[in-house]
Simulated assay, not measured.
Amino acid sequence: MKPYSPEELDVLLEALSHHHRRQIILRLEEADKDTIKFEFKPPKEQQQVDWHIRLYHHHVPKLESAGLIKWNKQNATLTVGDRFDRAVTLLEAIHEEYDEREF
Protein backbone atom coordinates (compact mmCIF):
# COMPACT_ATOMS: atom_id res chain seq x y z
CA MET A 1 0.00 0.00 0.00
CA LYS A 2 1.25 3.48 -0.79
CA PRO A 3 2.06 5.74 2.17
CA TYR A 4 -0.45 8.36 3.30
CA SER A 5 0.30 11.87 2.07
CA PRO A 6 0.15 14.57 4.77
CA GLU A 7 -3.02 15.96 3.17
CA GLU A 8 -4.74 12.56 3.01
CA LEU A 9 -3.79 11.80 6.60
CA ASP A 10 -5.26 15.15 7.69
CA VAL A 11 -8.55 14.37 5.91
CA LEU A 12 -8.76 10.84 7.34
CA LEU A 13 -7.84 11.82 10.89
CA GLU A 14 -10.34 14.68 10.87
CA ALA A 15 -13.10 12.41 9.57
CA LEU A 16 -12.25 9.72 12.14
CA SER A 17 -11.73 12.10 15.05
CA HIS A 18 -15.13 11.39 16.64
CA HIS A 19 -16.00 7.98 18.07
CA HIS A 20 -19.47 8.00 16.44
CA ARG A 21 -17.88 8.32 12.99
CA ARG A 22 -15.38 5.56 13.79
CA GLN A 23 -18.25 3.32 14.83
CA ILE A 24 -20.04 3.93 11.52
CA ILE A 25 -16.90 2.93 9.61
CA LEU A 26 -16.40 -0.16 11.80
CA ARG A 27 -20.05 -1.22 11.37
CA LEU A 28 -19.73 -0.95 7.60
CA GLU A 29 -16.42 -2.82 7.63
CA GLU A 30 -17.77 -5.60 9.86
CA ALA A 31 -20.86 -6.07 7.67
CA ASP A 32 -18.75 -7.85 5.02
CA LYS A 33 -20.71 -6.10 2.29
CA ASP A 34 -20.35 -2.77 0.55
CA THR A 35 -23.73 -1.34 1.61
CA ILE A 36 -25.60 -1.29 4.90
CA LYS A 37 -28.93 0.14 6.01
CA PHE A 38 -28.58 3.41 7.92
CA GLU A 39 -29.95 2.13 11.24
CA PHE A 40 -27.99 3.13 14.30
CA LYS A 41 -29.30 3.04 17.83
CA PRO A 42 -28.41 5.91 20.13
CA PRO A 43 -26.21 5.43 23.15
CA LYS A 44 -28.31 5.06 26.29
CA GLU A 45 -27.43 8.52 27.54
CA GLN A 46 -28.76 10.30 24.43
CA GLN A 47 -32.24 10.94 23.19
CA GLN A 48 -33.10 9.20 19.92
CA VAL A 49 -34.07 12.43 18.11
CA ASP A 50 -30.88 14.23 19.13
CA TRP A 51 -28.81 11.21 18.11
CA HIS A 52 -30.32 11.00 14.63
CA ILE A 53 -30.01 14.76 14.10
CA ARG A 54 -26.30 14.59 14.89
CA LEU A 55 -25.76 11.59 12.62
CA TYR A 56 -27.86 12.96 9.77
CA HIS A 57 -26.58 16.55 9.83
CA HIS A 58 -23.01 16.19 11.05
CA HIS A 59 -21.34 12.80 11.31
CA VAL A 60 -22.52 11.05 8.13
CA PRO A 61 -22.01 14.15 5.92
CA LYS A 62 -18.48 14.54 7.32
CA LEU A 63 -17.63 10.93 6.41
CA GLU A 64 -19.15 11.40 2.98
CA SER A 65 -17.27 14.63 2.25
CA ALA A 66 -14.01 12.89 3.20
CA GLY A 67 -14.73 10.13 0.67
CA LEU A 68 -15.09 7.37 3.27
CA ILE A 69 -18.72 6.56 2.52
CA LYS A 70 -21.45 7.25 0.00
CA TRP A 71 -24.82 8.08 1.50
CA ASN A 72 -28.10 7.39 -0.27
CA LYS A 73 -30.68 9.38 1.68
CA GLN A 74 -33.65 8.02 -0.29
CA ASN A 75 -32.77 4.39 0.45
CA ALA A 76 -31.25 5.17 3.85
CA THR A 77 -28.08 3.24 2.97
CA LEU A 78 -24.37 3.76 3.45
CA THR A 79 -21.89 2.39 0.90
CA VAL A 80 -18.11 2.26 1.05
CA GLY A 81 -16.44 5.29 -0.50
CA ASP A 82 -13.19 5.67 -2.41
CA ARG A 83 -11.13 6.23 0.76
CA PHE A 84 -12.93 3.64 2.88
CA ASP A 85 -10.19 0.99 2.72
CA ARG A 86 -7.52 3.57 3.58
CA ALA A 87 -9.55 4.62 6.63
CA VAL A 88 -10.02 1.01 7.77
CA THR A 89 -6.29 0.37 7.41
CA LEU A 90 -5.57 3.43 9.55
CA LEU A 91 -8.10 2.33 12.19
CA GLU A 92 -6.59 -1.17 12.24
CA ALA A 93 -3.12 0.31 12.82
CA ILE A 94 -4.50 2.34 15.72
CA HIS A 95 -6.33 -0.74 17.01
CA GLU A 96 -3.12 -2.79 16.97
CA GLU A 97 -1.33 -0.07 18.91
CA TYR A 98 -4.03 0.30 21.55
CA ASP A 99 -5.44 -3.25 21.46
CA GLU A 100 -9.01 -1.98 21.74
CA ARG A 101 -11.86 -2.27 19.22
CA GLU A 102 -14.29 0.16 20.88
CA PHE A 103 -12.22 3.33 20.64
Score class of each variant (00 low, 15 high):
residue 41 K to T: 14
residue 22 R to A: 09
residue 102 E to H: 08
residue 12 L to F: 07
residue 81 G to H: 02
residue 55 L to D: 09
residue 27 R to C: 13
residue 75 N to D: 15
residue 45 E to H: 12
residue 2 K to V: 14
residue 94 I to S: 03
residue 18 H to D: 14
residue 36 I to L: 11
residue 26 L to K: 05
residue 19 H to W: 12
residue 43 P to W: 14
residue 1 M to F: 09
residue 6 P to L: 14
residue 49 V to Y: 13
residue 16 L to N: 02
residue 36 I to C: 07
residue 98 Y to I: 12
residue 67 G to P: 02
residue 81 G to D: 07
residue 38 F to M: 13
residue 7 E to T: 11
residue 92 E to H: 08
residue 37 K to I: 15
residue 27 R to T: 14
residue 43 P to K: 04
residue 51 W to T: 00
residue 6 P to S: 13
residue 57 H to A: 09
residue 9 L to Y: 04
residue 57 H to S: 08
residue 83 R to F: 10
residue 20 H to A: 13
residue 64 E to G: 00
residue 29 E to T: 01
residue 64 E to P: 00
residue 82 D to Q: 07
residue 25 I to W: 01
residue 58 H to A: 13
residue 71 W to L: 13
residue 67 G to H: 04
residue 51 W to M: 02
residue 85 D to F: 05
residue 41 K to P: 08
residue 62 K to V: 13
residue 34 D to W: 02
residue 32 D to K: 11
residue 59 H to Q: 09
residue 102 E to V: 08
residue 48 Q to G: 00
residue 65 S to M: 10
residue 10 D to W: 09
residue 71 W to N: 11
residue 15 A to T: 03
residue 74 Q to E: 15
residue 35 T to A: 12
residue 54 R to N: 14
residue 76 A to M: 14
residue 32 D to T: 02
residue 56 Y to W: 08
residue 34 D to I: 08
residue 57 H to Q: 10
residue 62 K to H: 07
residue 8 E to G: 00
residue 3 P to N: 10
residue 18 H to N: 10
residue 19 H to K: 08
residue 11 V to S: 03
residue 100 E to S: 05
residue 7 E to R: 05
residue 71 W to H: 13
residue 71 W to F: 14
residue 81 G to E: 07
residue 80 V to R: 10
residue 33 K to F: 11
residue 5 S to T: 15
residue 71 W to T: 06
residue 30 E to C: 04
residue 8 E to H: 02
residue 96 E to M: 10
residue 56 Y to V: 03
residue 71 W to K: 03
residue 18 H to Y: 12
residue 64 E to D: 05
residue 89 T to E: 13
residue 33 K to V: 15
residue 26 L to T: 04
residue 55 L to A: 04
residue 88 V to W: 02
residue 37 K to D: 15
residue 89 T to P: 00
residue 39 E to M: 06
residue 59 H to F: 12
residue 22 R to G: 05
residue 38 F to D: 14
residue 62 K to S: 11
residue 31 A to H: 03
residue 69 I to T: 03
residue 75 N to I: 03
residue 72 N to R: 03
residue 62 K to M: 15
residue 84 F to I: 13
residue 68 L to K: 02
residue 49 V to I: 11
residue 101 R to K: 10
residue 72 N to M: 07
residue 52 H to I: 08
residue 15 A to I: 08
residue 13 L to D: 06
residue 80 V to Q: 11
residue 80 V to A: 08
residue 26 L to D: 04
residue 30 E to R: 09
residue 2 K to Q: 14
residue 77 T to Y: 06
residue 64 E to L: 04
residue 32 D to E: 14
residue 90 L to W: 01
